[in-house]
Amino acid sequence: MDKSKEINGAADRGQELLAIHVKNAHTRLSDFLDQYGTGLDVLGKAMGAFTKAVYDLPESAACASGCAWCCHLRVETSIPELLVIYRELLTGSTPEGIASLKKWTREAASLGDLRDEDLWYQHKLPCPFLDNNKVCLIYPVRPFACRAHHSMDAALCQKGYEEGRRLMIPSLPLYRASTDIYSTIFIKVMAVRGFASFPVGFIKGLAMLLEEPTLTEAWLNGKDVFSPARIIKGDSRE
Rank of each mutant, 00 (worst) to 15 (best):
A155D: 09
G205E: 02
Y139P: 00
L174R: 10
R74V: 05
H149A: 13
R74T: 01
K204G: 02
E163M: 09
E59A: 11
T184D: 14
Y182F: 14
V22Q: 09
T51F: 02
S183I: 02
G39I: 04
S4W: 08
S110F: 04
S197P: 07
G164N: 03
G37I: 00
S4C: 03
G234F: 07
P170F: 00
V141C: 06
V200W: 06
S197H: 09
L172W: 06
P126W: 04
A154R: 10
S4T: 06
C157K: 12
I231N: 10
Y86W: 06
K223D: 05
L174N: 05
D118R: 00
S60F: 14
A19F: 06
T77L: 02
F144D: 01
P95H: 06
L17N: 10
A207F: 01
G194V: 11
P199R: 08
T216C: 12
A11G: 02
D235L: 04
G194H: 05
K159H: 13
T51E: 14
A46M: 10
I85Q: 13
R193M: 06
Q15F: 11
G234R: 07
V135M: 15
T91V: 15
D34E: 15
K188R: 15
G92V: 09
S236T: 08
T77S: 05
Y55G: 15
D224T: 01
T179V: 14
K103W: 11
I203L: 12
A155K: 12
V22D: 04
L215W: 00
V192L: 13
S65R: 10
P126G: 04
P140N: 12
K52P: 04
T27I: 15
L209I: 11
P140L: 04
E88V: 09
A49R: 13
S78M: 03
T179C: 07
S30T: 15
L174Q: 09
A177T: 03
R147T: 05
T91E: 13
H72L: 01
C67P: 01
K23D: 15
G164T: 10
E6D: 00
D180N: 11
P143M: 04
R176A: 14
I85G: 13
N133I: 10
L111Y: 11
G92H: 15
A99F: 08
L57G: 05
R28C: 12
F50S: 12
A109N: 09
E16Y: 08
C67F: 02
P80W: 06
G66L: 03
F50H: 12
R13V: 12
G97H: 08
K124R: 07
I231A: 08
R28F: 12
N132R: 14
C71G: 00
H150L: 13
S65Q: 13
Y139I: 01
C70S: 03
L156V: 14
R142M: 00
K233Y: 08
L130W: 01
V135N: 10
F32A: 07
K103Y: 10
I20P: 02
T105I: 04
R106K: 15
L43K: 09
R166L: 08
D235E: 05
A64S: 12
P213Q: 08
T27C: 10
A177P: 01
C70M: 03
L220W: 09
